[in-house]
């Protein structure tokens, strides 16, 4: 779906993954104009799998910035392999996308 932008590039045996997720990452500490607290709404877990093997599990709190960015590197993948990224937030909403490593 549309909430994830991800790019994975294999170079010299190392794959660099860069991902951007659209998400409000609301802390639960902010107030709206009427003074009411805006409830927390944030991604708690991001899982990334290469050909079905887990290469990264990110556990996040509210202090990750709005529209989160995540980058990491792993070895052992080749161009054409599949990479899947899934996120789940504190309301149980989730999204997932699969890309081919270039």
């Amino acid at each position: 779906m549309a909430s994830i932008k991800i790019r994975a590039k294999a170079e010299g045996g190392v794959t660099t993954v860069k991902a951007l997720i659209s998400h409000p990452m609301e802390t639960g500490q902010r107030k709206d104009k009427s003074g009411a607290v805006i409830p927390a709404h944030f991604i708690q877990e991001v899982v990334c799998e290469h050909n079905g093997n887990n290469v990264m599990t990110a556990l996040w709190g509210v202090a990750i910035s709005k529209n989160p960015y995540l980058s990491f590197k792993f070895s052992g993948a080749k161009p054409g392999d599949s990479l899947q990224l899934t996120w789940v937030d504190n309301k149980g909403e989730k999204d997932s996308t699969k890309v081919q490593i270039s």
Partner: peptide, 24 residues
């Protein structure tokens, strides 16, 4: 920060010691 723990990245066996993100 009020809650100091920002994030924890659990790495797979083939994952390098590198992460990049943006925090508050």
């Amino acid at each position: 920060n009020a809650s100091p723990m920002v994030a924890s990245f659990v790495l797979g066996s083939s994952t390098e010691g590198f992460v990049s993100t943006r925090i508050k």
